[in-house]
């Protein structure tokens, strides 16, 4: 199941009908709270966070919404991580990406963003090897660590560790021993 959350609508619904910019921490806090309420107890869900109707995104708001949202659903974090939610960010313009990259790199986080043609790509702090592994899964679809190891030229144990880490970061999905990209069902 794919959920679609239009951030422009969330902003207008939670903060003010008149606002189109995601600026300030209080705004970010309110918007993130609304997103979390919409997600409820969702599990194993792909959720599109749509920026199409958002004007400006400043660093503080990007930190408050995106970094904290990703941290909350990151399964590497112990404590009270909720169900598995895989975010796909859509409608990002160059300046949204600049703010987002800044905060992601600051926290060592990453996300999946969808380009105009629907192809996903990674933004944020992901090392070269993990990017290669992620790209292999994106190209060939659901596959095991052994297949990825062969395609990426990695030792199988290493490929598996990288895949599991990407899954825990919710940048890949997992079904038993198969890994697959977090994509929006067409």
């Amino acid at each position: 199941m794919t959920r679609h959350i239009d951030l422009g609508s969330v902003l207008r619904g939670t903060v003010s009908e008149q606002f189109t910019n995601l600026v300030t921490r209080p705004t970010g806090h309110a918007v993130r709270g609304a997103i979390e309420a919409l997600l409820g107890d969702a599990t194993d869900a792909v959720t599109v966070i749509d920026f199409t109707h958002v004007g400006l995104l400043d660093y503080s708001c990007a930190d408050e919404i995106i970094a904290k949202l990703l941290q909350r659903y990151d399964a590497r974090e112990p404590a009270d991580a909720p169900g598995a939610v895989y975010f796909v960010f859509r409608g990002l313009n160059e300046l949204h990406i600049e703010s987002i990259e800044w905060v992601l790199n600051h926290h060592g986080l990453a996300l999946v963003a969808e380009e105009e043609d629907g192809e996903p790509h990674l933004i944020g702090a992901v090392d070269e090897e993990a990017r290669t592994v992620w790209s292999v899964v994106g190209k060939i679809g659901a596959c095991s660590a052994l297949v990825v190891a062969e395609q990426a030229g990695l030792e199988p144990g290493r490929a598996e560790r990288t895949l599991v880490d990407l899954w825990r970061r919710r940048l890949l999905r997992r079904e038993n021993d198969q890994f697959l990209a977090a994509r929006v069902a067409s």
Binding site: T24, D58, S60, S99
Partner: peptide, 20 residues
């Protein structure tokens, strides 16, 4: 022209310094 949004972001962060 790309600087416009960055300018508005800079202004936003500077103003938030007061609030925070």
């Amino acid at each position: 022209s790309k600087a416009t949004m960055g300018f508005a972001m800079t202004l936003s962060e500077a103003c938030q310094n007061i609030i925070e």
